[in-house]
């Protein structure tokens, strides 16, 4: 039984490493911000969960005293990362989209407004223009 668990945990850890290899190559090689985000968000989360599960099985394998508690803590980290990593990827993606990062395209003519998103217009252009106007008005008043 213990031997079987050991092999299972090793398989989990190695598959996690494979997925992280994919994430790493993706972050290095993909052409623009959004595709790199894709590699980072998916590969990183899945590989972390797989390696954490493997380590939890590895820790619980020797059945010593408080090792069950430690395994539960490791699984809690896996759940924490499963919740937080996609959320932070989503938030960073939205921040980049609002900032007007232009996605790569074949004809190199895509502008950020072509995506039809509501973000850029009200977050950067109009607001900053309006702010500029109010600032100049104030200066004139003074």
């Amino acid at each position: 039984m213990s031997e079987l668990l050991n092999i299972f945990s090793i398989i989990l850890i190695l598959s996690g490493l494979v997925f992280f290899l994919g994430a790493s190559i993706g972050i290095l090689r993909f052409p623009d911000f959004y595709t790199r985000m894709h590699a980072a968000g998916k590969g990183d989360t899945l590989s972390t969960i797989l390696i954490m599960s493997g380590m939890a099985i590895q820790v619980i394998g020797d059945f010593e005293g408080s090792s069950v508690l430690v395994a539960i803590k490791i699984l809690a980290i896996a759940v924490l990362i499963m919740l937080t990593s996609p959320t932070s990827t989503h938030l960073l993606m939205k921040a980049g989209y609002d900032d007007g990062i232009i996605p790569v395209s074949k004809d190199k003519k895509t502008k950020i407004n072509d995506l039809g998103g509501p973000f850029l217009k009200d977050s950067l252009s109009e607001k900053s223009v309006a702010k500029k106007k109010t600032a100049t008005k104030k200066r004139v008043k003074k």
């Binding site: 809690a76 924490l80 919740l83 959320t87 938030l91 702010k131 104030k138």
Partner: peptide, 27 residues
């Protein structure tokens, strides 16, 4: 006075971040 009235008040970081934070904050 340098802040316009409509920018006072901070709405947070969106629904998804709020839900995640409400899940993990107690822990």
């Amino acid at each position: 006075e340098s802040i316009p009235k409509n920018q006072v008040g901070d709405e947070g970081a969106g629904l998804l971040a709020r839900m995640t934070c409400s899940l993990i904050l107690p822990f």
